[in-house]
Design a binder for these strands. Structure first.
Lengths: 141, 141
DNA sequence: GTGTAAATGCGAATGATTCGCATTTGAGCG
DNA sequence: CGCTCAAATGCGAATCATTCGCATTTACAC
């Protein structure tokens, strides 16, 4: 059962298993969208789970630290967004018109990163790409 | 003379030529680093130019709007940074240790962006890439 | 069950950025 | 060159996401 799996993740991360941690992980693992701290609170309220906003922030911080969640800061959004970490490298394609955010599971970087290491002398640990454009729906309208 | 060139840019953008606009453009055009609004104010103060922080924000907003400057929001910095727009497509390589920011003037995207347009149906307008790693100096230390 | 550190709630603080409004300034025009 | 008016500026307050301090509660090891 998925829930047991989440509890294991929490405990393996050296964290206490609390109802808020579990429900935030469940929520994000079921969500197709990125959610802000505020969104998370709203969604939990819909499920009759009342949580303080500070607690949401502290909880997601811990879960990001332990790599159970990812924190995403997009160019056009001032608030951080969170997603369940499915451990699949990806980037985002963002509609400049309707702000739709679509994950992209392919990545054009690979070889280039090696070249860049040689040229720059940096030891490269990672990268972040965002693509901006107009989605199909907005092009029609 | 460079200054005349900047004044032209300001006027062509339909803006009034004010000492603050000119000095902010001059400052950024001479700077090798990205500067925050606060940094800009500090640097101008060093040159005995006293400017209100609100004015810095309003000025860079206008100059970004008119593409004389670029606004850059990096993952790890909460404040926006500004650079003079030299109209050369580039990305950034950031040292996770000392926060050095190095511009990279090559770009691995080109063909991939076309593929992505086909696959996604998006009309892609642009992209943003950040590379993270450890710079040569920090690797030694 | 007990003890203890970690987690939580609540309200206040922080810090970047924006806003409202009164004053000043740039630039076109006579 | 002086006049006029919109645009630009200064200043202080407001905003909004996020963090902090502290008192209280809870999870988990023994």
């Amino acid at each position: 059962m998925q829930k047991e799996n989440f509890i294991d993740k929490i405990l393996n991360a050296g964290l206490k298993n609390t109802k808020y941690r579990l429900s935030i992980i469940e929520l994000l693992s079921e969500s197709k969208e990125l959610l802000t701290a505020y969104n998370i609170r709203e969604e939990l309220l819909k499920k009759k789970i009342k949580i303080n906003l500070s607690t949401v922030y502290r909880t997601v911080d811990k879960l990001v630290e332990t790599k159970i969640l990812n924190r995403i800061n997009l160019e056009n959004e001032k608030n951080a967004m969170y997603e369940y970490n499915r451990e699949k490298h990806h980037h985002f394609l963002i509609c400049e018109n309707c702000n739709k955010i679509v994950p992209i599971y392919s990545c054009p970087i690979d070889k280039y990163e090696l070249e860049l290491e040689e040229k720059s002398g940096f030891q490269i640990k990672g990268h972040k790409i965002e693509f901006y454009g107009i989605c199909e729906d907005c092009q029609k309208a």
